[in-house]
Design a protein around this nucleic acid. Sequence first.
DNA 1: AAAACTATCCGCCAGA
DNA 2: CGTCTGGCGGATAGTT
Length: 316
Amino acid sequence: MRSVALAVHEQVTLLEVATAYEVFGVDRGLTPEWYDFAVCGAEGTPVGGWFQARKPRGLDTLAAADTVVVPACGDVTRDPPTDLVEAVRAAYDGGARVVSICTGAFVLAAAGLLDGRRATTHWLYAERLAERHPNVHVDPGVLYVDEGRILTSAGKAAGMDLCLHIVRLDHGMAVANALARRLVVPPHRSGGQAQFIPAPMASARENPLADVLTWAIARLDQPLAVEDLAREAKMSSRNLARHFNAVAGTTPSQWLLTQRLHRAQELLETTDDSVELVAARTGMGTAATLRRHFSRAVGVPPDTYRRTFRLGQGVS
DNA sequence: AAAACTATCCGCCAGA
DNA sequence: CGTCTGGCGGATAGTT
């Protein structure tokens, strides 16, 4: 996945174009080969109402890229431009990985790429997306969703998280962490699949579990069991599991484990606590348990992760 | 390293 | 009737 094409079109917003450009378009020498980055669209397309795309490649060249990034389409009440939808469809059919930021998900949905898949978009438009495209499993509560060749992200800044996630997939964690350090953003805020972060704006109506999740995150240092969550949620564990699957696409214990591992990563990055202590402070019990889960989820053992991260800091 | 032990998940059914 | 909920038990993943 070495070439990235960014689709610009009418009403595209500045931040998202900038996000993709900063991540994929600037070679900071972090790894021998960075991405071949191209902007595709019509000459003079206004960007964010302030700038104009200069000498972009045509939309028809989208399909040539390994990865296609689709930023927000300004007006979601109208159908996205047909030529854009078709170009995205063609790119996907040609084997490209397709990524949307914010309401760019509407373009992917219009191209039929999201049917039967989990996806996300800006929380403000999640309901509209679900209405317009009933076959899409819209999850308004995550930063991004990784469905393999289709990746969608929530509003604005979450696009950065997804772009970093892609760099992590392509170049590994060390490079992604070094880049995050250069950009001065958190190195890893996880998005889709088994991972779930309660969206700050998620209302109790959208996500009846939001309170329980927040409650649990505040007590991560304790060995919480699923039963404890159920009690807090005032429902049976059976029902809690059901809601978890519906809202987060995962099980209570899986979600809990993911949160613990996030906290562990954070502690490894920011403290000198021993792995035993990190295990205790993340409610993982023993170091052995932490090591096993950490290695499987992150890919490297805790000690290696800490060393790698420290190295990444040195690069800046 | 394996076996006993525990917690969790999930399909199914029944009741509200 | 469709939807939501709780409980049961086999299967399985995780822990000691």
